[in-house]
């Protein structure tokens, strides 16, 4: 059992890749915002990389253990401590019954920290996943963020291995100025946006709005040129189209405002999407600080984006770990 002493700002149970295959029912996949740190944490404690763990956002959470486990914390530095003693990120530790794991406030760049516990968080599987999907109030612990007093069941611990770490050269580096690989489409130029619009999109240093969360990342307002004068039958504004499905990670432009549709986002709607964040770059979104961080989009094609995914999958393997 994992007892929640404090849920902090927003702590949820997630698994990877979340609820895949339900887009046609209106359900985005959920899952961790930073799937790289999340999967690494699981790997460190001997879990399947996709096993259910915790996503701690913006800091401040505390957990107590009721039996012996192996834990790892990966992602943003929230000054994690076991029984008050500082521990390193990207490294597995043993905890005993009665021990506490505390995550404090953010220290340096990054915004989300991931806690993996050997055996995984054993909340019920809902529609194929344990991931918390707040818009539908399903998955995770009662479909919501964790609160003080919640008791999380844990799975059977298998080949848990404390005392391992991610090789220091392979630990991802965080920044406040991100470069995010993205692929054009489906309503980019030439028929919805102009070439100049897309050049601006791929060169501007966008600021992430403070009203950004798991459903969407809002970027700066921009006066687009638009290739069409109106949205025709779909509405007065050229950003309007007849409703269509939205890709996960799409940069959706509603009027003047681009919004990246993150893992809890809407599945379908009537606004254009000028680009889509490459699957292998989605993790970076999870570490951006709303209201402060800047991001530029770097254009890649489908083949280059597929290559990114393969590189990432290679990274998430035993070869990336070492004994301490």
């Amino acid at each position: 059992m994992l007892e929640v002493k404090s849920g902090g700002i927003e702590t949820t149970v997630q698994d990877y890749p979340g609820r895949v295959g339900l887009l046609d029912q209106g359900i985005f996949p959920a899952g961790p915002m930073d799937d790289l740190a999340f999967r690494m944490a699981n790997l460190l404690v001997g879990n399947d990389p996709g096993a259910a763990g915790l996503e701690v956002t913006a800091g401040g959470a505390e957990f107590a253990f009721t039996d012996n486990r192996v834990v790892a914390v990966c992602g943003a530095d929230m000054q994690p401590r076991i029984n008050g003693e500082p521990i390193e990120l990207w490294r597995s530790y043993e905890v005993k019954a009665g021990d506490t794991l505390t995550l404090g406030w953010l220290n340096g760049p990054g915004f989300r920290s991931y806690v993996a516990v050997s055996g995984g968080i054993d909340v019920p599987v809902v529609l194929g996943s344990r991931a918390t999907y707040a818009p539908g109030e399903i998955g995770g612990y009662e479909g919501r963020a964790l609160k003080e007093g919640d008791q999380l069941p844990l799975g059977n611990t298998g080949n848990a291995t404390p005392g391992r770490r991610v090789k220091p050269s392979l630990v991802p580096t965080y920044t406040s100025e991100w470069v995010v690989e993205a692929v054009r489409g489906p309503q980019a130029d030439p028929d919805y946006f102009t070439t100049e619009d897309m050049e601006f999109f791929f060169s501007h240093a966008w600021t992430l709005d403070r009203n950004s969360n798991r459903t969407g990342y809002r970027l700066d307002i921009h006066q687009w040129q638009w290739a069409r004068k109106t949205g025709g039958v779909a509405g007065g504004h050229p950003s309007n189209i007849l409703d269509n499905g939205y890709p996960v990670g799409a940069v959706n432009v509603a009027g003047d405002q681009p919004i990246i549709l993150t893992v809890d986002g809407p599945t379908l709607g009537g606004f254009v999407c000028c680009a889509v964040v490459a699957m292998g770059a989605m993790w970076k979104l999870g570490q951006m600080v709303p209201g402060w961080d800047k991001l530029r989009f770097k254009e890649v094609d489908i083949a280059q984006a597929a290559e990114l995914v393969q590189q990432m999958n290679q990274l998430i393997s035993e070869e990336s770990l070492e004994g301490v």
């Binding site: 489906p186 889509v276 597929a306």
Partner: peptide, 18 residues
Amino acid sequence: YRQAGDRFMLVEFGDMEF
């Protein structure tokens, strides 16, 4: 057929009319 990122493709029928 429209490219919609690296793992999605949009297939559109006819013109933008209801």
